[in-house]
């Protein structure tokens, strides 16, 4: 066989291979697209349940699936034996703010209310410049300065360590907001994204948006429809690690949405959990540790 013929044959072979590969990929994409979200979710749930049942080696699972398995396990324990913590790997964070947006969507946060901003810091001088992104949820401090200042005990530390707010009790004095060293508490002034937008028949989209804004959120496992003068309007608000999701076996919205798997969540009282492994490293730090607040959000540098 001449060199030319050999080259032609190899090209034909590669072309055939590419076609077959492409068809296979296309088929799998079509298959995936064909599956309804419900089916995909059911499959995912089943995979997690199998892993739980089979006591699968966590190391073989994707980090998100592993954290789900561990979360479901932790929920079997009494609440006071769980210790929810968050670990954020700053080396993996690309500053996309997907976590911020997921949190806003999950908790239906109005304008001016944010639980998890991502602080963008520029480091160095040109030409040696880089950026560091610092997602800042509530630190769920073990020794929270915001709790003892509340005049009506509307904010408190739950048995699982999460610092919660009882919206129906909060009088809106904002003392807790001044007491938080992390600026993790905000006030809900009752604003809406549709404020000042046109209404009437010509603005159907606006009307729909208004309906969406009035829809209830499910913070702390309760329904809070957005109505004028009703809580959480007029209250202090903060990140609660998506307690309503956790208690239903789901990871916080910021954790599942993180495109770089930079946010980890789990039970620090479980020595075998992923988060326990991650915080046992020399490059771990917590913000403003000198204040003695004992934050439960850890950062990997």
């Amino acid at each position: 066989m001449s060199d030319k013929a050999a080259v032609t044959k190899r090209r034909q072979f590669l072309r055939g291979l590419a076609a077959a590969g492409g068809a296979a990929v296309a088929l799998s994409v079509i298959e995936k697209l064909g599956a309804s979200p419900e089916t995909a979710l059911a499959e995912h749930e089943a995979r997690i349940q199998n892993a739980v049942n089979a006591n699968a080696d966590p190391a073989t699972l994707d980090s998100l699936e592993r954290m789900r398995v561990e979360l479901v396990e932790a929920l079997k324990k009494p609440a006071n034996q769980r210790r929810w913590i968050m670990v954020i790997d700053l080396r993996k964070c690309v500053g996309c703010s997907a976590c911020t947006v997921a949190c806003v969507a999950e908790n239906k946060l109005p304008p001016g209310v944010v639980y998890r901003p991502v602080i963008d810091e520029e480091i160095g001088a040109y030409p040696n410049v880089t950026r560091r992104f610092l997602p800042r949820p509530c630190m769920q401090c073990d020794n929270p300065p915001c709790v003892p200042v509340c005049p009506v005990s509307a904010t408190f530390k739950r048995p699982d360590g999460i610092v919660a707010i009882d919206y129906e009790a909060c009088i809106g004095c904002r003392y807790c907001i001044t007491a938080c060293p992390y600026a993790a508490r905000v006030f809900d002034f009752g604003e809406a994204y549709t404020d000042g937008t046109p209404s009437g028949p010509a603005a159907v989209a606006g009307a729909q948006a208004r309906g969406y804004e009035a829809a209830a959120n499910f913070e702390y496992g309760n329904r809070y429809p957005r109505q004028k003068g009703e809580s959480p309007i007029g209250n202090a608000r903060k990140c609660h690690f998506c307690i309503h999701r956790i208690e239903n076996g789901m990871l916080p919205a910021c954790t599942t949405t993180c495109i770089g798997r930079a946010t980890y969540f789990g039970d620090a009282n479980d020595a075998a959990s992923l988060v326990s492994e991650l915080i046992a490293q020399p490059n771990v730090l917590r913000l403003k540790e000198e204040l003695g607040t004992e934050p439960k959000v850890h950062y990997l540098m």
Binding site: P148, P151, S153, A169, I171, G172, Y175, N235
Partner: peptide
Amino acid sequence: DIGHMERFLSVFTRPNFHSLMTWIV
């Protein structure tokens, strides 16, 4: 100044005496 003016009596009905604000009220 408070967000829920109608709840001001809570400082008397469910006080937290660790808070200086409660003491002041």
